[in-house]
């Protein structure tokens, strides 16, 4: 198989693993900016509600043996990775086509 293709497939697999692992720990994220905001009493304003707000699918009514948030986080992470992958590929190939 083409060496380029092998390298890129590896990166895609690693990205999927990160999306999977990240979704399990994302809910524990407490970043320095959050702490700074707490110290400085900054208030967040929500001007719109994103479809996968907080890296979850927003399906609390579905019972999945207590793993609803984890599973929804994993799916949201993988969906996000695929959206970014698609956008970046489309942009990269548009730029490449323009050049050629």
């Amino acid at each position: 198989m083409n060496q380029n293709l092998v390298t890129f497939l590896k990166i895609i697999i690693v990205a999927a693993i990160f999306a999977f692992l990240g979704s399990w720990v994302a809910s524990y994220a407490y970043e320095p900016l959050d702490k700074a905001a707490e110290i400085l009493k900054l208030k967040e304003i929500e001007i719109f509600k994103a479809p996968l707000s907080g890296y979850t699918l927003g399906w609390p009514s579905i019972n999945l043996l207590g793993y609803e948030l984890d599973i929804s986080g994993i799916i949201a992470g993988i969906v996000g990775t695929l959206i970014v992958l698609t956008l970046a590929y489309i942009l990269a190939y548009m730029l490449l086509r323009k050049k050629n």
Binding site: I12, A15, V25, A92
Partner: peptide, 23 residues
């Protein structure tokens, strides 16, 4: 951009997005 760097850009961008979720 060329045939080598364009796909790398796409996959690397997705990889960074996924990696940003791991704290």
């Amino acid at each position: 951009f060329d045939e080598k760097t364009a796909p790398l850009f796409g996959t690397l961008t997705a990889l960074i997005f996924a990696a940003q979720m791991v704290n």
